[in-house]
C-alpha cells in the first residue's frame, strides 16, 4: 500500500428515498489517540509528509507530527514544553536528526522528523506541565 495515497473506500450511500448508489470517498487518515503513561494527557496525533496527511512516514524522508494535547487532570494542566523524539528500541538508537518543535494552545508539532531505516519506531512525546514531565508513546511499524 502506498502510504501517501489517501485511503480509498467504497461506501454505500443512501441517496434519496430508497435509492442506493455506489460512491467513491477519499477518507483522510484520522487523528489517532493515545493516553500518556500516567494517564494525565490525551494525545491526538497525525503525520504529515509535504503538508499532506499520511498513514505512515516514508523512510528517509522528512515528516511532521501534529499533536493535540488535552489534560485529563482536575484542574486541567497546561503543557509548558513538549519534546518529541523517536527511537528504535530493538536497535538501541534514535533518529539522526533533531526535530523542530512548536508548542501552541492546542498542542504542537514536530517538524523535521526522519526515520532513516525501516523497522519498529517508538515515538516519544514528553509533556512538561511545570512540575513533572510525563511521557506519551506509540509505535510506528515501517516494514
Amino acid at each position: 500500500m502506498n502510504p501517501i495515497a489517501p485511503r480509498v473506500a467504497i461506501a454505500l450511500v443512501l441517496c434519496g428515498a430508497g435509492s442506493l448508489a455506489l460512491q467513491r470517498v477519499d477518507a483522510k487518515p484520522p487523528w489517532k489517540e493515545v493516553t500518556s503513561n500516567d494517564g494525565s494527557w490525551r494525545v491526538k496525533w497525525r503525520l504529515l509528509v509535504d503538508q499532506r496527511e499520511v498513514e505512515l512516514p516514508v523512510p528517509r524522508r522528512r515528516f511532521t507530527i501534529e499533536l493535540k494535547l488535552e489534560s485529563t487532570c482536575t484542574p486541567p494542566q497546561t503543557p509548558r514544553l513538549i519534546v518529541v523524539d523517536a527511537q528504535m528500541p530493538e536497535h538501541g538508537h534514535g533518529m539522526n536528526v533533531a526535530p523542530t518543535i512548536l508548542l501552541d494552545e492546542q498542542g504542537g508539532r514536530a517538524d523535521g522528523m526522519l526515520f532513516h531505516m525501516t523497522g519498529r519506531w517508538e515515538v516519544d512525546v514528553d509533556i512538561d506541565d511545570g512540575c513533572t514531565v510525563e511521557r506519551a508513546q506509540w509505535n510506528i511499524g515501517m516494514y
Binding site: N37, D124, G130, T132, V133, E134, R135, Q137
Partner: peptide, 11 residues
C-alpha cells in the same frame, strides 16, 4: 519497561 514520567530535582 516503559518510562512513565520524570521530575527534575530543581522542582
Amino acid at each position: 519497561a516503559r518510562l512513565v514520567k520524570t521530575r527534575p530535582y530543581d522542582r
